[in-house]
């Protein structure tokens, strides 16, 4: 799977953190501008796939440090849990809840179950893409 291209390897090294940062940016602004969990997840997934192709599987797994299947499971759990707080307020499952959080130095931050849900989607998408791609890449060897 290693393509042995110096340019690709260098690019992989530099692009992975940049793309991951970009994906987080897409994730957090997604509620107001184009972006969101699906897109951000795909960007992050693609970033890891690029890294996988420029390095090798072991390196990709190492840089990922967590099994993509766990990412899927964690994402699903987070997504389901984000629906729970509504129940405690006597509302339907998945009713969005918003909190204002004052962070010293940064001002007010909006925190919501909706954001948690989007992060869940983000994790599931990364996990699914990487599970598929890594499995296939390993089968290739």
């Amino acid at each position: 799977m290693n393509m042995h291209s110096l340019i690709l390897r260098t690019a992989g090294h530099f692009l992975l953190p940049l793309l991951l940062l970009f994906s987080l940016f897409l994730l957090f602004r997604g509620h107001n501008e184009p972006g969101g969990g699906f897109i951000a997840g795909l960007v992050a997934g693609a970033a890891f796939v690029l890294y996988l192709f420029s390095m090798d599987i072991a390196a990709a797994r190492k840089v990922l440090w967590i099994d993509p299947r766990s990412l899927m499971g964690g994402g699903m759990t987070l997504a389901v849990l984000s629906g729970v707080p509504g129940i405690f307020r006597g509302q339907a499952f998945f009713t969005a809840q918003w909190w204002e959080l004052a962070v010293p130095g940064l001002g007010k931050m909006k925190l919501s179950t909706v954001l948690l849900f989007d992060i869940g989607v983000y994790l599931v998408v990364i996990g699914a893409v990487l599970t598929i791609m890594l499995t296939l890449a390993e089968a290739e060897d």
Binding site: F38, V125, I132, L136
Partner: peptide, 17 residues
């Protein structure tokens, strides 16, 4: 469509394998 595209990818991967 947005979700359909992503699911389509998953289903395609499944079908191909």
């Amino acid at each position: 469509i947005l979700t359909a595209i992503v699911i389509g990818f998953g289903v395609l991967a499944f079908a191909v394998v």
